[in-house]
């Protein structure tokens, strides 16, 4: 038998910022199994299976087109309405799912967390990854619609080089959702109120993000507020890069990146502080 010197300590207070990447790596299989579980279990015993991932954005797009496009007559800056709403919804859904699901990490997993140890960060990470898969499916729907309009004669779409920023935008959204979600999940261990707050908070947030209207339709104070919202520049850049309509600014995007990194670090910090003893207060 080999006696490796594999000594570890269990002590009351941890280091202020402890991110044990080696341990995280050792549990990578668990991460992928969680992703697989989340992805598979959703459509087990359904007839349409993964098709359900399409249905939700399709219907939301139809509703938005009818209500905001036809009745309210909001501007889409010349972009076909269906494409305009679908692009916003696809991106927003990814962010919103990452945020809401990670924000209940501790509450949802208390049965597992209370019985077995593994790096708790695996849980929110797996949520972000399984939602990325879901996003991939929904994005393919967007691409189909996009190509339809691209080759349709009477619409003009102007994709540009910023399209290559797309993976960066996705990562940014994922990390922003993860960071915020971790902060909220840590606070929910004590204050369950936040769970209700997040439910309608995320809906309100959608309306202050340019999903159903373009940023250019705002001006004055409203515009300043919209720009302070880190999601604004992500959505606008996404639309601009694929369609050519929208407001893009490096400054806004840099601002969002800085905010995201800040929130992510704060999230990891609070999450780490919570994970050791949260079982006592949940």
């Amino acid at each position: 038998m080999s006696y490796k010197n594999n000594i570890s300590f269990i002590v009351p207070k941890r280091k202020f910022f402890k991110l044990n990447l080696i341990e995280l790596w050792l549990y990578k299989d668990l991460l992928f199994l969680f992703v697989k579980r989340d992805f598979i279990s959703v459509y087990k015993q359904t007839i349409l299976g993964p098709m359900w991932f399409f249905i939700q954005p399709v219907f939301t797009t139809i509703i938005f087109t009818v209500i905001f496009g036809k009745f309210a007559g909001l501007s889409t800056e010349g972009t076909p309405q269906i494409l305009f709403y679908l692009s916003g919804i696809t991106c927003w859904n990814y962010f919103a799912e990452c945020l809401t699901k990670t924000s209940t990490t501790f509450v949802d997993n208390q049965n597992i967390f209370g019985k077995v140890y593994f790096p708790r960060l695996i849980s929110p990470l797996s949520i972000v990854l399984s939602n990325l898969l879901k996003f991939g499916v929904q994005f393919s729907l967007f691409l189909m619609v996009y190509f339809y309009y691209l080759f349709k004669e009477d619409t003009v779409l102007n994709p540009n080089l910023l399209i290559f920023m797309f993976p960066f935008l996705i990562i940014l959204m994922g990390l922003l959702g993860l960071g915020l979600g971790m902060i909220i999940s840590s606070l929910t261990t004590k204050y369950r109120d936040l769970r209700f707050l997040i439910q309608f908070g995320i809906q309100l947030w959608m309306y202050v993000t340019p999903i159903i209207y373009p940023l250019s339709s705002l001006n004055g104070k409203l515009k300043t507020v919209a720009i302070l919202n880190p999601m604004t520049s992500i959505i606008e850049t996404f639309k601009y890069s694929f369609v050519g309509n929208g407001s893009f600014s490096w400054a806004y995007l840099t601002y969002t990146s800085v905010i995201t990194i800040f929130i992510l670090f704060a999230g990891i910090l609070i999450f780490n502080k919570t994970e050791q003893n949260f079982m006592d207060s949940i």
Partner: peptide, 9 residues
């Protein structure tokens, strides 16, 4: 699963 209040293991 949970942390100690005092001591060391």
């Amino acid at each position: 699963v949970t942390g100690p209040s005092n001591g060391k293991i």
